[in-house]
Write a protein that binds this DNA or RNA. Structure first.
Length: 220
DNA sequence: AAGTTCCC
DNA sequence: AGTT
């Protein structure tokens, strides 16, 4: 008999928890990246100096509110011709900066902690959200191999992550993601629709008025 | 096809 | 509205 006034639910979870009830393939690793924020941000600075964040256009011709860049062998881009992975930065005609070891190790360890050992990402998409920026519900389906998971790292201002189902019309769960959180989804959840609600105004102690998201994929 | 918004 |  437990006579405590509190039970385990009153405390922050330690370790992996399902991102949403009933999903077997998706995991929230709260604060998983916290101990590595400083080296992550140092590496990020070097990447965006070589491959600046930019607002890409969608096939419909509209400018995305999120500013993006990439590192790794392949980078995700969009323009009026469509979505694809490319080896070179179209804004610089040079290869994307290499994926820093601190990025790769974080992604691999997070994937393993979520039940996906052996993850070998070849692409990392960098997303910068300022207040008001958002990402509409979409599927990650430009990759060749859907057996590899997606690993998403949140830094800076909190964001509301929208995690839907296999159909665009499926109701999306809303999960607040904080500085240092890592989300992994794969397996039966690999193609679930997801997005980000408009970023709320705020100031983060480390990153100021922005959120940076790192998304690791196996694209080839 | 990664901007869906707004209105009833 | 314009549209891979």
């Amino acid at each position: 008999m437990n006579l405590s006034l509190f039970d385990d639910d009153d405390f922050a979870a330690i370790g992996p928890v399902p991102l949403v009830p009933g999903s077997t393939g998706s995991t929230l690793l709260r604060g998983f990246a916290l101990s590595r924020v400083a080296p992550l941000l140092a590496a990020l600075d070097a990447i965006v100096q070589a491959a600046p964040l930019r607002h890409m256009a969608t096939p419909g011709g509209l400018r995305m509110s999120v500013a993006m860049s990439n590192c790794g062998q392949l980078g995700w881009v969009t323009d009026t011709r469509g979505y694809r992975y490319v080896r070179q930065d179209p804004d610089g005609s040079a290869p994307w900066p290499p994926m820093p070891p601190v990025f790769l190790e974080l992604a691999r360890e997070a994937a393993a902690a979520a039940g996906y050992p052996g993850f070998m990402p070849d692409a990392c998409l960098l997303n910068r959200y300022v207040p008001g920026a958002r990402m509409a519900l979409h599927q990650d389906k430009d990759e060749c191999d859907f057996t590899a998971p997606i690993v998403s790292v949140s830094l800076g201002l909190p964001a509301t992550f929208l995690f839907g189902g296999a159909l665009r019309a499926d109701r999306a769960a809303r999960i607040v993601l904080l500085h240092g959180d890592v989300v992994v989804w794969g397996g039966p959840d690999r193609l679930r629709y997801h997005g980000v609600a408009p970023l709320k105004d705020g100031q983060h102690a480390v990153l100021g008025a922005q959120r940076i998201n790192l998304t690791f994929r196996k694209a080839a």
